[in-house]
Design a protein around this nucleic acid. Structure first.
Lengths: 201, 201
DNA sequence: TTGATAAGTAAACGACCGTTCATTATAATA
DNA sequence: TATTATAATGAACGGTCGTTTACTTATCAA
């Protein structure tokens, strides 16, 4: 079994993440592994197939993470306050892990940049981008915060206040020379929000 | 004098904003105005020149806006509380106008999408993106909030809490079927933050 | 050892790329 | 009206694009 197919996938993602799908040639991808472009077609039937494989891979990774990170229900009989505390802890752990995932994981970081560059090309790409990085995470948090506060309006407001800075810091991370400090800013934001946000009181 | 040059600029921006610079051909740009690509070279010496003209135009528009919107100093002798209130009003007006500008103004909206798609291609594009949409606005707000709170740390924290949701809503706006409601969410966020954010008390 | 399968090369394909150029139509000036 | 500058054409240029093909090499089971 060859790992050439895998190397093609990650080389292509690196290039797609920097220049966008159209601006990357099959020649460049093959050149990254020191093979000719003809050899590439032994592993993928065309250029678009590489792109589609990246989307599929992300879908699989996302599913695996969802399973591993699923937020366990706190026992209800401990009371609403214990439930809130347990939920808040889960959110903090999950959110910090997510920030590291989108920034420090090579595949996830590349994928994030790739769909950022492709988001305006079609309705499909647009909804994919929103689902992974835009209103998807925000609505997810809105549901959770609505549960906590008992109000959909407050939940939506809290989600915007919580995920907005998270989203901005992702973007700032990409060009920051001091990436560790951006991670810390994200952690601080998460801690600060979950412990002292007035909307959650 | 011909307005063909102007039409080329805006047609190119529309296409660049959707597909990115490399993915747009000179043929496509010319086709948008019903002329051949040869004619295009009577107005711009090459494709890159069109791109550079867009950057230059944005720079000019940005300067004009900065002049028109410069925040007037509130009279100091009225006391710190009056200064804060005047500043807060200016921030609200300016921020709401900025959100409409980046979403509803055709040129600014196209430019925002364009640099979003080009941000990873070079350090120059990266810093341009950050300057217009990333750490640029955030640091600008951090300076203002630092002045108000008298603390650089609190100023930076407030800037993240203020500009993060603003930045996220810009992204959500692009694919939202109900754009008016996104504008309202931005307005509400700005009002809510400037009036009752605990970090500003 | 033989034969099959997989993985690579190099060359070629037609299509399109950005750009140039000789030519023609248009429109304003003298 | 004749002249001149401008704008547009369409063909051509050398390259590169994604893809296919014929051919070579390596691997390994029968």
């Amino acid at each position: 079994m060859s790992d050439t197919k895998e190397k093609i996938l990650s080389a292509a993602l690196s290039l797609f993440a920097r220049d966008g799908y159209e601006a990357v040639s099959v020649n460049m991808i093959a050149g990254e592994l020191g093979i000719t472009k003809g050899a590439l077609y032994k592993h993928y039937k065309n250029k678009r197939h590489i792109f589609d494989s990246i989307l599929l891979r992300m879908e699989e990774m996302d599913y695996q993470r969802a399973v591993a990170f699923h937020m366990p229900e706190a026992p209800v009989e401990d009371g609403i306050e214990a439930y809130r505390r347990a939920t808040a802890d889960n959110i903090k752990t999950y959110s910090k892990a997510q920030f590291r995932y989108w920034t420090e994981d090579g595949f996830a970081s590349g994928f994030r940049k790739l769909i950022t560059l492709e988001q305006y090309r079609s309705p499909e790409m647009s909804s994919l981008y929103q689902q992974y990085l835009g209103d998807g995470p925000m609505n997810y948090m809105a549901d959770i915060f609505s549960e906590i506060t008992g109000s959909p309006e407050k939940g939506a407001e809290a989600a915007l206040q919580f995920y907005g800075p998270f989203f901005l810091l992702l973007s700032i991370y990409d060009s920051s020379p001091d990436k560790k400090s951006v991670i810390k800013m994200a952690d601080d934001h998460i801690d600060n929000f979950m412990c002292s946000a007035p909307i959650l009181q």
